[in-house]
Simulated assay, not measured.
Amino acid sequence: MTKRLRGRAAVEQRRRRLADEPLCRLCAERGVITPSTVPDHIKPLALGGLDIDTNIRCLCDRCHRMVTAEQFGKTRSKGMGGCDATGLPTDPTHPWAAALGRA
């Protein structure tokens, strides 16, 4: 695993990378303009990636969370998606559906 830069040098590196790529790369690919807030390692350090500029893409927090979850094998459970304005699940197969009378 590559050692991560720490301290003032890390803060300066992060600032420079965000200044170089101010918009989320993944949102921009979809035609959405979103400020980038996280310099993301394309190949994570934990998976052997290097902490070099060519291995960095700047993302918004939402895209960063999604990409990181995918890279480390985390996915949303099937049948657990969506909720209504009250926060209750809309999927009739959700475990709460029978208790809510929606099954």
Rank of each mutant, 00 (worst) to 15 (best):
residue 95 P to D: 06
residue 96 W to M: 13
residue 71 Q to H: 07
residue 27 C to D: 13
residue 69 A to M: 12
residue 44 P to D: 01
residue 47 L to V: 02
residue 23 L to K: 11
residue 36 S to K: 00
residue 19 A to T: 15
residue 85 A to Y: 12
residue 24 C to I: 01
residue 29 E to A: 11
residue 14 R to A: 07
residue 30 R to E: 07
residue 70 E to V: 08
residue 34 T to M: 04
residue 38 V to G: 03
residue 17 R to G: 09
residue 17 R to D: 09
residue 22 P to T: 09
residue 43 K to A: 07
residue 70 E to I: 10
residue 13 Q to C: 12
residue 25 R to G: 03
residue 71 Q to K: 09
residue 38 V to M: 00
residue 76 R to K: 15
residue 102 R to C: 00
residue 35 P to V: 04
residue 45 L to H: 11
residue 62 R to P: 00
residue 53 D to I: 11
residue 38 V to H: 04
residue 28 A to T: 15
residue 90 T to P: 01
residue 17 R to I: 04
residue 89 P to D: 02
residue 8 R to N: 15
residue 32 V to K: 10
residue 52 I to Q: 14
residue 78 K to H: 14
residue 96 W to C: 06
residue 12 E to S: 13
residue 5 L to V: 14
residue 71 Q to E: 12
residue 92 P to G: 05
residue 93 T to E: 14
residue 87 G to F: 06
residue 5 L to K: 14
residue 20 D to I: 03
residue 67 V to D: 01
residue 102 R to L: 05
residue 73 G to E: 01
residue 45 L to V: 11
residue 46 A to V: 05
residue 44 P to L: 02
residue 74 K to N: 11
residue 74 K to P: 00
residue 20 D to G: 08
residue 4 R to Q: 15
residue 89 P to Q: 03
residue 47 L to S: 05
residue 34 T to Q: 13
residue 36 S to G: 09
residue 82 G to S: 04
residue 79 G to I: 06
residue 59 L to A: 10
residue 81 G to L: 11
residue 70 E to H: 13
residue 12 E to M: 12
residue 80 M to P: 03
residue 26 L to S: 08
residue 86 T to F: 06
residue 90 T to A: 02
residue 69 A to D: 12
residue 21 E to W: 09
residue 96 W to T: 02
residue 62 R to E: 13
residue 52 I to R: 14
residue 82 G to M: 04
residue 73 G to W: 00
residue 40 D to Q: 00
residue 58 C to V: 10
